[in-house]
Amino acid sequence: MDDTDSKRQGLAALFFGSIGRRAAGFVEQLAFLYRLILDSLYWTFIAPLRGKGLRVGSSFDEMVKIGVNAIPIVVLISFSIGMILAMQSAYQLEQFGATIFTADLVAVAHTRELGPLMTAIIIAGRSGSGIAAEIGTMKVGEEIEALQSMGFNPVKFLVVPKLLALAIMGPCLTVIGDLVGIGGGVFMAVFSLDLGFERYVTRTIYALIFKDLVTGLIKSLVFALLVGITGCYMGFTVKGGAEGVGRNTTMSVVVSIFLIILADAFFTALFYYLW
């Protein structure tokens, strides 16, 4: 056996070895994610019934952090989006002399799509990254192990309050975003498009149907939970100190937004064809 032969074999071993390791690592990660989701469900729905308690106090704290504190930015962005949407719609609709339908477009587009989407992206940037950073820092500082060593379950302590808060505040923020976004449309309609306040609002109310609101809110609930699970997963899987925390925090935002868009496509199609 000559030198190049053994070298080739070495390379092959290296190549397949690395594929094998990656595959094993991937399976391990999936298993961890599966456990995280199962444990979250258990500690949210089953454990409280068995008298193991739910951390209501920290859930409220999280609701303030994730929900209440996000209201200003949600308001600001939704109002701007509402205005932008009104102007863009009017630009097209003017050509048909149907500017008043701006009201329909803003209302439907905001409640069905942009309200849930923009709010979810804000939550991903604000809270998803925060969750990943918080849990990641605790992991690096042995705080998670300290919790466990006191007989506390980290999922019950850290994950469930955040997911509960997200599940409640995601739709709440979306409702606020929807209202403010439509308000942005009203603002443009009155001050720039000369549509008249009453006419525009009547048209909006006429255009809005229950289904649009509900599908939007269902989406927002799913988006918020995706952000939460992603943030927690990224937090718990931090490796290697502060640098790892930074890396996983960034990853949590990127992955959250990716998953939000995927889920958005899925649910939009679902509602389009089925409802």
């Binding site: 300290a146 060593s149 006191m150 007989g151 379950n153």
Partner: peptide, 23 residues
């Protein structure tokens, strides 16, 4: 986990990095 949790109430741990809850 339940049995472990009960046992751990009688155990104290001082971690290498102190591991105080920073929040």
């Amino acid at each position: 986990e339940d049995q472990m949790s009960t046992l751990l109430r009688k155990v104290g741990v001082v971690f290498q990095s102190s591991a105080l809850f920073n929040s």
